[in-house]
Write a protein that binds this DNA or RNA. Sequence first.
DNA 1: GACTATCTACTCGGATATCAATTGTCCGAGTACCCGTGG
DNA 2: CCACGGGTACTCGGACAATTGATATCCGAGTAGATAGTC
Lengths: 160, 160
Amino acid sequence: MRMSEGVEWAMHTCLNLAWVGPDRAVPAARLAAFYDLPPAYLGKQLQSLVQADIASSSPGPRGGFRLAREPETITLMDIVTAIEGPEKAFRCSEIRRRGPQNEVSAGSLDHPCHVSWAMREAELAWRRQLASKTLADVQKTVLRTSPAVPERTRRWFAEQ
Amino acid sequence: MRMSEGVEWAMHTCLNLAWVGPDRAVPAARLAAFYDLPPAYLGKQLQSLVQADIASSSPGPRGGFRLAREPETITLMDIVTAIEGPEKAFRCSEIRRRGPQNEVSAGSLDHPCHVSWAMREAELAWRRQLASKTLADVQKTVLRTSPAVPERTRRWFAEQ
DNA sequence: GACTATCTACTCGGATATCAATTGTCCGAGTACCCGTGG
DNA sequence: CCACGGGTACTCGGACAATTGATATCCGAGTAGATAGTC
């Protein structure tokens, strides 16, 4: 169970878009250059963010990407879901219904699968934790520990 | 981010081994037949359980698998880790260190990556939840809702 | 009748193919800006 | 000088390969029990 590498890219990229602000659009190529990532592939991830209404895109010269919403309304869960898709990590395929013993299982299959329930409970805890943190929260933490980063990042994207 | 299908198999199989008890060993083929699963592939998953000291194996006639520990000491986290491996789902590759802007980043890289920290925090919540539930807990829940299942399962593995 | 050596059948365990999904790349469609031209 | 039309360069967006990991399978090594032979 490994998470797509693109999640890390999307997180940091969204953070960069947050520093730049919604007034300027940043091309995918420039966003990729900031971390020396493959531009085309990052573009693919950005498309997922657009479809999830986290970022918005504009074509042509002076075009690029910007955040579609306020950082306060974008949770880390939103970003993970946008990249990884909405499906759960643990997929209960109800194997308990299969097999020969099934003939005599009678009513016990009416109850939900306890294994599945426990796994979903854990996954829910994970989702709750991610949904409780917004992009703005991360911004605040960065500001506290590295106050110079926002302005420095803004300038790097402004030049050239 | 999808979890291996083998996790579901391992969960239910461990539960079956718990019902049978540590006195009898059950061959992989019979464990697979119970859910109509590919026997050889389930055997592979069982090997992982053995390496994690969750199950123990004995070769030859009357051989097979049995639980290596008491169900009270086997957490769902143990089983997931045995199958999926110990590595975290979110792997921080420190992309923030790469790229041209790095030259002027100076001291801000001394701080841990905030994105990584938030992701690990969420994953920790997930792990805690899974580690808090033992195989015995699941057994109790099954006993409460479907009291006939344990004896029925035991008998199915005893016959033939 | 009891003990021992051999033989057989059954089991796991790791090495080996096959398949799907993630990762990575490319080219076409569309748009905004720039420039030249005409009023 | 201003408005307009065409051209150009830049951007995203989806269609197209390649590589990694998960899925599935097979055969050999080893063991326990049964069996036959011997004391």
